[in-house]
């Protein structure tokens, strides 16, 4: 994917650009909204990662508003230290598609960027998901592994579905809470871990190799080969 990164903090900028390049993306980093707007208007990007507070009189919100006024629909992810709900709402109202607050885990940023990129490519709705010997039929709501039917409760099904849709990518606990439970808070105890371990009991136990992996300090990843 081609990603425009507008971030004035050189440390964060270098860190994000390096990580995204390592993940196989092309990154154009700029440090002012003016440069960002110029590039966004003249080049074609899959995703724009945008800081809210930028130097030079123009902030991230203005950039998005201006960009949207020109008819551009390129997905925008806000990356900001402004964490309050009304700040998030302002960002999304201005035309942003996602909002991640600093400090953040790089894995989460990557996962969200890739999700946005996929959305913008407008892939046809899937009816079947698969990874390795695991198959999920979204219409019949059934799951099979090595041809053997696995009986899942609705929440477990949804959890596995989210992991499968992001197969090969890290999915953070926050993302799982949002996607499966529609909760936008972090519980005191990591209840997600218990749900995932329960899912593992059904999906991985007794099979040749594990599919659900824990990624330290980040979250979970479903991938077919160890």
């Amino acid at each position: 994917m081609r990603i425009l990164l507008v971030e004035d903090d050189p440390e964060v900028c270098r860190f994000v650009a390096k990580g995204l390049r390592e993940a196989g993306h092309v990154v154009d980093p700029v440090d002012t909204a003016r440069d960002g707007l110029f590039l966004a208007a003249s080049e074609s990007y899959d995703v724009i990662v945008l800081d809210r507070m930028l130097p030079g009189g123009m902030d991230g919100l203005r950039l998005v508003e201006t960009l949207r006024a020109t008819g551009s629909r390129v997905p925008v992810l806000f990356l900001s230290a402004l964490a309050q709900v009304d700040e998030r709402v302002r960002g999304l109202k201005a035309g942003g598609d996602d909002y991640l607050t600093k400090p953040f885990a790089f894995a989460e940023l990557l996962a969200r960027i890739e999700a946005l990129g996929r959305r913008s490519r407008g892939e046809a709705p899937l009816t079947r998901l698969a990874a390795g010997d695991l198959e999920m039929d979204l219409l019949a709501r059934t799951v099979r592994r090595s041809g053997q039917a696995i009986d899942l409760k609705p929440r477990e099904f949804r959890l596995l579905e989210v992991l499968l849709r992001h197969a090969g990518q890290v999915v953070t606990r926050t993302m799982l809470l949002e996607a499966v439970w529609d909760y936008h808070f972090d519980p005191q105890t990591n209840v997600i871990d218990v749900h995932v371990s329960r899912l593992r009991q059904k999906v991985d136990r007794g099979f040749a190799y594990p599919l659900i992996h824990t990624v330290r300090n980040a979250g979970y990843m479903l991938r077919a080969e160890g």
Binding site: Y183, H184, F185, P187, Q188, T189, V191
Partner: peptide, 17 residues
């Protein structure tokens, strides 16, 4: 809804502890 859910979750969290 989100805040009420978090409040109930916290109460359940304490209770489980």
């Amino acid at each position: 809804r989100d805040l009420i859910a978090q409040a109930v979750a916290n109460l359940l969290d304490n209770a489980t502890k």
